[in-house]
Write a protein that binds this DNA or RNA. Sequence first.
DNA 1: TATGAAACATGTGGTCG
DNA 2: CGACCACATGTTTCATA
Lengths: 156, 156
Amino acid sequence: MATDYELDDFDREILRRVQADARATGEEIGAQIGLSAAAVQRRIKQLRKLGVITAEVALVNPAAVGQAMSFIVGVELERERVDMLDAFRRAARADPNVQQCYYVTGESDFILIVTARDMDDFEQFTRRLLFDNANIRRFTTHVVMARDKVGSMVPV
Amino acid sequence: MATDYELDDFDREILRRVQADARATGEEIGAQIGLSAAAVQRRIKQLRKLGVITAEVALVNPAAVGQAMSFIVGVELERERVDMLDAFRRAARADPNVQQCYYVTGESDFILIVTARDMDDFEQFTRRLLFDNANIRRFTTHVVMARDKVGSMVPV
DNA sequence: TATGAAACATGTGGTCG
DNA sequence: CGACCACATGTTTCATA
């Protein structure tokens, strides 16, 4: 957990840099913030162990792998029962087209970020996860025309 | 660019793995898919150069760095004029609280994923980007209660 | 053109002061 | 925390198919 670890300025500087580029070497970062390479790596290791850094991942361009389209889908469940919530959650999490899934307050219960090769692929997705599901009252679809900012850069 | 590079099965297997863990070594991946470490690293290098892999980044837990809250905000502009769109785009992109920004079809013009330390921080954000902006007709806010799936894993 | 093996260079992680 | 050292990793070269 460690949801309330006290970061110092060095930690924050390191996080800013590895969020932009996880392959930055300890030496590079250290030279920029005034720390030895070893010290930087010690801190990164600690940040990983504490769960501040949850993962280091490669970002792939969806268009480059034939996933040309993105959608944002708001889902309203029929009745907010805990077991239904959990069932939908698990289905969304397991679906390969679902990039992100948020459980939210407001008109919608869930908001999904979805990628698909084309409209047909998206339609198959909606049938699989949404239409063939009696728990779902309605859903709204937004087609993404441009991703202006992407990734999960957190201000630290 | 290279938005239409033909990936083979090896490339796809590699992408699946580095999307989950960018620190996986060439040797580990190679052992799993039946390729030498050198071959895997050559392919990763190529995928980077072609823009299939756009970045390798560290994911940080927002709660662990005092960004306890997340919001999804739908923004409707007053009039869809190109210069207004671009102006909003640039402002959203530059705002440190905006994690992601999508330009979409449908009721909203933009959908933003926003993090904030607390409600007060979020309120400052809405004033900065939304209230003090004559171009914005209205916006809707969803408070994120749970992030069930996060990251940008693309099915390949 | 792409591969595997080996040599080389660089980055990483531990232990010491 | 910095300096060092052992080890792992990534990169390049080269012969081969």
